[in-house]
């Protein structure tokens, strides 16, 4: 057998080994992908069985829902239906937004209680 023919046989043998190993890795990778897909499908099925957030009274940490109890997250501006926030709080008896109230501040109604008292109700003896 001449050298050229021998080289072809050797190359064929090494190529068979290489291709077989690549196929084996491909099969392993495919099994890993299928396993991952099964895990994801199971996780989605499991989460779809869970009750929707809010239905059981539990809320997310960053979730702020206007619930009429006057307690809101700091800095939250909640529309009250008339397009303005804060002004009707005192008139309607609604608890004003303690930390927010940018609109109210611009209208000059969000001043400290003491200031308002000084203007509207002068201290006794100041007649």
């Amino acid at each position: 057998m001449n050298l050229e023919e021998a080289v072809w046989y050797v190359a064929a043998a090494y190529a068979v080994v290489l291709v077989a190993l690549l196929l084996l890795f491909a099969v392993l990778a495919r099994r890993l992908v299928r396993l991952t897909q099964r895990v994801n499908a199971l996780r989605e099925t499991d989460q779809s069985d869970e009750p929707a957030p809010g239905r059981d009274g539990a809320r997310g940490a960053v979730e702020a829902v206007p619930d009429g109890d006057g307690v809101r997250a700091a800095g939250e501006v909640v529309p009250d239906g008339d397009g303005a926030t804060g002004p009707d709080a005192a008139a309607g008896g609604e608890t004003p937004d303690p930390g927010g109230g940018a609109a109210a501040a611009s209208a000059g109604r969000d001043a400290p209680a003491g200031d308002r008292q000084d203007r509207d109700h002068p201290p006794s003896g100041e007649t």
Partner: peptide
């Protein structure tokens, strides 16, 4: 089995040579 199959194929190539 995988390695056995590989032995058979490489062995056949070598046997032919």
């Amino acid at each position: 089995l995988f390695f056995s199959g590989l032995v058979m194929v490489t062995g056949m190539i070598w046997g032919r040579a």
